[in-house]
Simulated scan of single mutants.
Amino acid sequence: MSGEELVTKVKRQSYRAMCASGGPILSALAALWLAGCSPQADAQASADPGVPEGVLISTEACERNSAVGTIVYVSGYGYSASAGQLDVFLAKEMGYFDALCLDVEINAGGANGQQLVSSGQAQFTALGSASDVILAAANSSNLTAVATYGTTSPFSIFAHEDVTSLKELEGRKLGYFINITPIAKAMLDSAGVDVSKVELIRMTNYDPTVVTRGQVDAIVGYASNQPERLRAMGLPFNEFRPADYDLQGTYNVMEVNTQFLNENREVVADFMRATLKALHHCLDDEADCVERISVLAEENNQGSAFPADQQARTWAVEAGWVRATGKAPGVQSIADWEAEHAMVAQYGDLRTLPAIEDMMDPDLVASLYVDGELQWPGE
């Protein structure tokens, strides 16, 4: 860290601390700094390059947000350019958390995000679909979904060019990662596939060319990643998506520790407000966000896993999924999950299935918008 960066960091920490302390003992200088906690001071704070990005909320709100201490977000997919992840990294990078007096720490290597959040060791994490949330909720009652970013399933089955229908997978090899998702099982069932005749192989290699080279005949993958890599390489393959079988899914879900939500609802709302502010920026300027997240990945030794060209392809697809909902980003409803909930009930191998309303808060993110516009202090 350079000397200038260190000075800025110290100023930022002092600034937040003074916003949190308040009281009559503040010196005149501290009172001037404290004025930056109000929306009216934003222009002044921004105009002075020696002052960190201005705090935009009231002293009371700043104290409330600071009082919870460090908020830990776990990215189970590293620096991937995906909603519910990209926006958290960018909210921190662009100072949106600081503007709301939130001290956010990001764990970018935590594949066990659900366990960490459920146990209270972290507060937020993102999952790939409502199915993931439902399956996790069967083993934990301390997770609440506060945002769903799309109503398009992110999963697809991509296959060797010789496989022209899913039915043709009988007698062939189908790869999967971690588990065969309920929506993939529903696809196979809808196509009339006898799964007992398919050789299922758990994959550890994320190289999609294992399909085009015939090492496996097909893979249950993430539609914005591996198939897009094959397209970029100009390799022939066939892809089957849930929509081909009139199956509706969900794309990416933000979860929070339920106890933390119950005790700090306004803080959770401000965390989501900051991330959604970043998400709107990433929808408006895809190139800027891809560049920012790719630089962060490189700086944190994940550049080889998340090269800029791959990030650009991924976000181009996933940004489309966010826009396709027809409503404000992140806003969710019980109806959005009903189709997938039914699929998990049929294909998820669970003895009991939690009700959707027991896993989701449909009101928190919706309350951050007025007439489809995200409410941001000072705007």
Rank of each mutant, 00 (worst) to 15 (best):
A319T: 05
L350P: 02
H280T: 04
R12T: 13
S2R: 12
V10H: 12
T212V: 12
V72T: 15
G54L: 07
D189I: 04
M1P: 09
P354S: 10
D42E: 15
E291S: 14
P52I: 08
A138R: 14
S333M: 10
G22C: 03
D162Q: 15
R313W: 05
A319H: 00
F124S: 00
N142K: 08
A223R: 14
T209L: 08
S224Q: 04
I334W: 06
S141H: 12
T250A: 06
T148P: 01
N252R: 14
Q115M: 10
S82R: 15
S14P: 03
Y79G: 00
A278F: 05
G110N: 03
P307T: 00
S58D: 04
A342R: 13
G23D: 00
P362W: 11
T59Y: 00
F260E: 01
H281G: 10
Y206T: 13
G214M: 10
E168N: 07
A232T: 04
E357R: 15
D336F: 12
A147P: 03
Q302R: 09
E105F: 13
Q346W: 02
K167D: 04
N301Y: 13
Y149K: 01
W33Y: 13
R273L: 05
A186V: 00
A45V: 09
L56W: 05
T275A: 11
V344A: 06
N205C: 11
A328G: 02
D132K: 11
T325V: 11
D336M: 15
V216K: 07
L174H: 05
V256L: 05
D132H: 14
Q123M: 06
S58A: 08
A316L: 08
E168P: 06
A99G: 08
G348S: 02
I106Q: 01
S224W: 07
A218L: 09
F260V: 04
G22R: 10
A122M: 05
A312P: 01
I180S: 01
Y96M: 13
I201H: 11
I25T: 14
Q375W: 09
S333F: 08
K11Y: 11
F155E: 01
E63N: 09
F260C: 01
A278W: 03
L368N: 06
D309F: 02
